[in-house]
Amino acid sequence: MYKKTKREPQKVATAATGNLQAGMTLEMKVARKTEIGYFLRAGDDEVFLHEKEAHERLHLDDEVEVFLYHDHENRLAATMDMPYVGMGEYGWLEVVDISPRMGVFLDNGIKKDLLLFVDDLPKLSDEWPRPRDQILVTLKQDKLGRLLAKPVTENEVTKIAAMAGAEMLNKQVEGTVYKVIAAGAFLLTEDEHILFIHRDEMVGRLRLGQTVTSRISYVREDGRLNGSMKERKEVQYGEDADKLLRYLINRDGAMPYTDSTEPDIIREKFQMSKSSFKRALGKLMKERRVEQVDGWTKIVRHEED
């Protein structure tokens, strides 16, 4: 998976005023002590470090490296815990909680979880991530300067992705969904290849942050991959054909569905795509086990039956 680069602390000039913002990592000096923590100073700016956010007892004029964020009362505060993902970085963060109204909360290595806002999530709740899923994100600020998670952009994925070679064909790979669209889902594999799985090649709906195993069905010229979570076609043909045959037997050998039936009806009745239905039906017809007559598919009755 994508590895973050080492982050260097941001230095604040001693003459700076009013420049402290959430998301900064910087060195600050202990200016004052209180009963519950410390006021840290950089130039003319001060920020509070609660004793629970300090890794050790501090003294006046000690210099410490801190990360700035807004606490639960929306005050700019400091912590000596370092985030897994900082400003300008991308990394995989684990989902720890879900709010249907607000979005999902991610563990970024500090005591306050990071919100991935509902507007940045798929519209269908079935495609939302679940606890323990991993989301590839960076940091951004809202209008009030508070930190939010921002999903990876396609441009960023393209920068970090590796080119896949022809040897990947038919291999089984593990990948995590970073983007869901109407036609399917984009994943980033363990070896950082971009993998697309069309909805017709899924086994159930995929969700953002879900990690799945799939077979590489096609290696594109641009080094991207197409995948399938289903069995190879020669195996799937047989399974789908058996499914149709069992359905026909349970209906006394006839059904009002043919290769002209609408795709939505096929998917509803048989949980397979129109193309899979036609392939399975074609297999049965080639074997002279079924025939199509007047808009019906019927089992062929042989003399010995």
Results as ranks from 00 to 15, higher is better:
Lys3Cys: 13
Lys4His: 13
Arg7Phe: 08
Gln10Phe: 06
Lys11Val: 12
Thr14Met: 10
Thr17His: 11
Thr17Phe: 05
Leu20Phe: 01
Thr25Ala: 06
Glu27Thr: 14
Met28Ile: 01
Lys33Cys: 05
Lys33Pro: 00
Tyr38Ile: 05
Ala42Lys: 05
Asp44Ala: 14
Asp45Arg: 09
Val47Gln: 05
Leu49Ala: 02
Glu51Leu: 07
Glu51Asn: 09
Glu53Asp: 03
Glu53Arg: 08
Glu53Lys: 09
His55Ser: 12
Arg57Thr: 13
Leu58Cys: 04
Leu60Ile: 10
Phe67Cys: 01
Tyr69Val: 00
Glu73Arg: 12
Leu76Tyr: 03
Met80Thr: 02
Asp81Glu: 12
Met82Lys: 11
Met87Pro: 06
Trp92Lys: 04
Val95Tyr: 00
Val95Pro: 00
Asp97Phe: 03
Ile98Glu: 00
Pro100Ala: 02
Pro100Asn: 06
Val118Lys: 09
Asp119Gly: 11
Lys123Met: 07
Asp126Tyr: 12
Asp126Met: 10
Glu127Leu: 05
Trp128Ala: 00
Trp128Thr: 01
Val137Leu: 03
Leu139Ile: 08
Gln141Glu: 13
Gln141Cys: 08
Lys143Glu: 13
Leu144Thr: 08
Leu144Trp: 07
Gly145Arg: 05
Ala149Glu: 09
Lys150Ser: 15
Val152Asn: 03
Asn155Gly: 15
Val157Asn: 07
Thr158Met: 12
Met163His: 15
Met168Thr: 13
Gly175Pro: 06
Lys179Gly: 05
Ile181Tyr: 09
Gly184Asp: 07
Gly184Val: 02
Ala185Arg: 11
Thr189Leu: 02
Glu190Gln: 15
Asp191Leu: 10
Glu192Gln: 15
His193Arg: 07
Phe196Arg: 14
Arg199Tyr: 09
Met202His: 13
Leu206Pro: 01
Arg207Leu: 04
Arg207Val: 04
Leu208Cys: 10
Ile216Tyr: 07
Ser217Val: 11
Glu221Thr: 14
Leu225Arg: 04
Asn226Ala: 14
Met229Glu: 13
Met229Lys: 13
Lys230Gln: 14
Lys230Leu: 10
Gly238Cys: 07
Glu239Tyr: 11
Ala241Pro: 03
Tyr247Val: 08
Leu248Pro: 01
Arg251Ala: 11
Arg251Cys: 05
Asp252Gln: 13
Glu268Lys: 15
Glu268Arg: 15
Ser273Trp: 04
Lys278Val: 15
Gly282Arg: 02
Met285Gly: 02
Glu287Leu: 08
Arg288Thr: 11
Arg289Gln: 14
Val290Ser: 03
Glu291Ile: 05
Gln292Thr: 14
Val293Ser: 11
Gly295Asn: 04
Trp296Glu: 06
